[in-house]
């Protein structure tokens, strides 16, 4: 494993029962990069993400986090590794019984010994970074889709994770809001130097922010191309990848 690789996937096979979603999947994520897991709907992108953050045990293969085998250890070891992760779920997955501020504060309360003043201060900072300061007291059900994602992002940032995972960050957002979220992700990455792994099929967003990635295919059920979205668009000769990317080109020209 190269020194600047933070996450490496080797021979991963994912299945729900006997239904295989992806097999023989391999890729590695460089520290500080924005890595995209791409592919059409239903090819298992989100399933891959679930196996990376500890929600789905792979049927075979390994996930190495900084050289440690994530699924080899017991639950406590996985938890310790997982504490270096932040996850933004597709619809934010905010805990509905807590206010926005409490959502961000909960991980800090659970995993640090900070006093209330320090926690408040960090919560305020995280909310201000994502532009959600004014919404601290609201409950998740009172938020719009875009706000929910930003609040989820603030929560994912709560413990200053090394790796941030995003499940379809721009899904369900209008192009302007989506662009704003992309910009925010870039600014935060540049600021904190985090590694970001994102699952997406939104081409504008992929082209704008990802600098490396893997392309999954639903029929062959494995990765068919590696590289940044831009490189795949310009250089890939794989017809599947081309079809996916060409639509984007037409859209951009139109």
């Amino acid at each position: 494993m190269a020194a600047d690789t933070i996450l490496e996937v080797q021979g991963l096979e994912l299945a729900y029962g006997t239904r295989v979603i992806q097999r023989d999947l391999g890729f590695s994520v460089r520290r500080g990069s924005i890595f995209a897991v791409m592919g059409g709907s239903g090819c298992g992108k989100s399933t891959v993400l679930r196996s990376l953050v500890g929600l789905l045990r792979p049927a075979a293969g390994r996930v190495l986090v900084g050289g440690e085998d994530y699924w080899a250890g017991d639950a406590a070891q996985r938890e310790a590794i997982g504490r270096r992760f932040g996850v933004l779920f597709q619809n934010g997955a905010l805990w509905s019984s807590l206010s926005v501020a409490e959502n961000v504060a909960l991980p800090l309360r659970m995993f640090t010994r900070l006093d209330n003043a320090a926690i408040d201060s960090l919560v305020r900072l995280k909310l201000a970074l994502v532009g959600m300061e004014h919404a601290a007291a609201l409950s998740p059900s009172e938020l719009s889709g875009g706000m929910r994602k930003r609040a989820g992002l603030a929560r994912a940032l709560a413990l200053d994770p090394e790796v941030l995972f995003f499940d379809e960050p721009s899904a369900g957002l209008d192009p302007v809001t989506s662009k704003r979220l992309d910009d925010l992700i870039l600014q935060l990455r540049d600021g904190f130097g985090q590694t970001i792994v994102l699952v997406s099929h939104e081409l504008p967003s992929l082209l704008a922010i990802a600098d490396d990635g893997v392309f999954l295919d639903a029929t062959t059920r494995t990765a068919i191309a590696h590289g940044s979205p831009k490189a795949l668009r310009d250089d890939s000769i794989n017809p599947q990848v081309q079809a996916f990317m060409r639509r984007e080109r037409l859209e951009q020209e139109g």
Binding site: G54, L55, V87, N91, A93, L94, W95, S96, P107, M110
Partner: peptide, 17 residues
């Protein structure tokens, strides 16, 4: 069950709570 549907339980598990 609703928390399950909203991925709230996943979020708890991924956070390690």
């Amino acid at each position: 069950a609703t928390m399950q549907g909203n991925e709230e339980l996943d979020a708890l598990a991924a956070t390690g709570i």
